[in-house]
Design a protein around this nucleic acid. Structure first.
Length: 112
DNA sequence: CCCTTGACTATCT
DNA sequence: GAGATAGCCAAGG
């Protein structure tokens, strides 16, 4: 396909759906993963017009800051949802849980 | 067509 | 690190 479909390629939804809880992906990363390099802005459009409920809050900017205005309702909602999944913030940047250094691993070590 | 608008990015000051 | 700048690309006026 040459364009982004008349609407949006379902592969975009797929990628977003597969972001693990507590983890985040940038618009550009999602675009690449879906096979559309440079379509980061289309991904953002896809978020705001998503036909179905998606973990949109796991989508952030490439610099790991949220795409909304700090303090806006959407910003607060997104940050709260992420925190509920164990993520935290370093200033404006979201810090995701690193499975390799999670508390469980520190306490019990790898349980392979 | 031309211009503007985005939940964007990479790069340079 | 914060701003400015220039690419990016579909949509709509």
């Amino acid at each position: 396909m040459t364009n982004f479909q008349k609407k949006f390629d379902p592969r975009v939804w797929e990628v977003v759906d597969n972001i693990p809880p507590g983890q985040v992906m940038a618009y550009g990363e999602i675009a690449r993963a879906a096979g559309y390099p440079r379509y980061s802005r289309m991904v953002s459009a896809a978020m705001s017009r998503s036909p179905e409920p998606l973990p949109w809050f796991r989508v952030v900017r490439s610099d790991r800051t949220l795409a909304f205005e700090v303090g806006s309702p959407s910003y607060r909602e997104q940050s709260q949802l992420l925190k509920l999944e164990g993520a935290h913030f370093d200033g404006k940047k979201v810090i995701t849980i690193d499975p390799a250094t999670s508390l469980d691993k520190l306490l019990w070590g790898p349980q392979d």
